[in-house]
Amino acid sequence: MRVLVIAESSERADIVRRGLLLAGHETANVAAPDGPLPSAMEQARPDAIVLETHSPKIDLLDRIIDAMGEKPLPLVIFSEDPSEQTISQAVRAGAAAYVVDGLNAARVPAIFQVALARFELMTDLRSELSVAQQKLTERKFVERAKGLLMKARNLSEDEAYHTLRRMAMERNRRMGDVAKSVLEMADLLN
């Protein structure tokens, strides 16, 4: 795994690199927190990011998120700042691990592994949430379209459902998409 290390000092970056090497990971690049992060990301093409800083400021976290672009990456933060506000900001920014005063090369492999597992779990949960939200939205469209068909064609609820289902099968489309089309057509006609 290729890891971009963003560190305030070269000594602490070396500790991170030794720890990543112990874990069998490659340090793709070392960047300074105040440097051009988008170009560092483009050059390194990392699979994960480790940030070593005295205290991760919100603007730095925002710059890291912006540099990631559309592809979120696991983010591990080693910091000396134990404040609740800073930790909360780091977690909201996507940190999979936030370690206070724990930068030790021997500890990096386990911390990094936990962060990767947590990132994967959060990615799976976000995906499941997105699917559930899409299904709920489609269900709302189907219910509204059924109501419209029941009223316009004087159908029972079951007949309206089967009409939508048949339309979806004939058009080889999802039922939610067909229901949305029915609603859009009704809006055009009104």
Rank of each mutant, 00 (worst) to 15 (best):
K180P: 00
D66F: 08
Y98K: 04
R17Q: 08
K151M: 04
F78V: 12
A40R: 01
S10N: 11
E143I: 15
N190W: 07
A23G: 07
V108T: 07
V3T: 02
M150D: 00
G147T: 13
V76I: 15
I77E: 01
E159C: 04
S127G: 01
A132Y: 01
P109R: 04
D81A: 09
V3W: 00
A28F: 08
E170V: 01
E184V: 10
L4R: 03
Q85R: 13
I58C: 07
L129N: 10
K71C: 14
E159W: 04
Q43E: 14
K146F: 01
A7K: 05
P38K: 11
T53W: 07
R153N: 03
R45D: 11
K140L: 13
N29A: 14
Q85F: 13
V30R: 05
A168N: 08
T123A: 08
A152I: 00
V16S: 02
A93P: 03
E138W: 10
R2T: 00
E143Q: 10
V50C: 12
S127F: 05
E11A: 10
L116R: 02
S83W: 06
A13K: 05
A97K: 00
A179H: 09
A96N: 02
H54T: 10
S181Q: 15
A132P: 00
H162K: 13
H162R: 13
H54V: 07
A44Y: 06
S181H: 12
K71A: 15
R166L: 14
L164N: 05
D158M: 10
A93D: 01
I49K: 01
H25K: 09
T86Q: 00
D124N: 06
L188S: 12
G69N: 15
S79R: 13
A23K: 06
S130F: 05
D14T: 01
H54L: 14
R12T: 03
A97W: 00
T53D: 13
V142Y: 01
M175H: 08
V108Q: 06
A96V: 03
R139E: 06
E138P: 04
L61Y: 04
L61N: 04
V91A: 08
M175N: 11
A23T: 03
I77V: 15
R45S: 10
R139I: 02
A40D: 09
E84H: 10
A97M: 07
I77K: 07
K151S: 09
V91M: 13
L37Q: 07
D177C: 09
